[in-house]
């Protein structure tokens, strides 16, 4: 077998120093080595978006990146969203309220794509949402509720920011 490769990687704030087979995809590192099974693998060819995670602040297909490429990188997965006490992230709340999920298989990728968009564009228009979410497939709900969810998440996050700024707890 080929030599293993050393990867120092931060995942959801935790640092890991790992030896991996070169062929280990980021998705398999997350799911297998780190037991973070929230990231789902759909097509394994970059089409469906289910495996989308945030690598160094950029939404990335974890099925199309080798872990070996990410020495020194920082990754965020769906497990990073909810607080330790189980309080849902605004994006998760919005998907629940607006019925943006049904079977939930595509949802981790949807949530991470939405988070990246909202970090870049705090109040996205419909076009921004369609552009950013267009690479994520859902086979249950149709997309109207998902677009509405991202919209609502933007509003929830803006409310949170403004209440934090004014010193009032939401």
């Amino acid at each position: 077998m080929p030599d293993k490769v050393r990867v120092r990687i931060t995942v959801n704030g935790a640092r890991h120093d790992l030896l991996v087979e070169p062929r280990t995809l980021l998705a398999d590192l997350l799911r297998g080595d780190l037991a973070l099974a929230g990231t789902h693998l759909g097509c394994e060819q970059g089409v469906c978006g289910a495996c989308t995670v945030i690598v160094d602040d950029v939404a990335t297909r974890s099925c199309l990146v080798f872990a070996a490429q990410l020495d020194g990188s920082s990754v965020r997965t769906v497990e990073s969203l909810a607080a330790a006490d189980g309080t849902l992230h605004p994006v998760q709340r919005a998907f629940t309220q607006e019925h943006g999920l049904q079977c939930g298989f595509c949802t981790p990728g949807m949530l991470m794509a939405a988070c990246e968009l909202l970090e870049r564009v705090p109040e996205p228009g419909r076009e921004d949402i369609e552009e950013s979410m267009g690479g994520n497939l859902c086979r249950c709900t149709g997309y109207q509720n998902i677009v509405r969810s991202v919209n609502a998440a933007g509003r929830l996050m803006a409310d949170r920011t403004s209440s934090e700024q004014s010193g009032v707890r939401a």
Binding site: G46, V58, T60, R61, L64, S132, G134, G135
Partner: peptide
């Protein structure tokens, strides 16, 4: 070309 997350890499 493709979608934004693909173009990002």
């Amino acid at each position: 070309v493709a979608h934004a997350p693909v173009r990002a890499r």
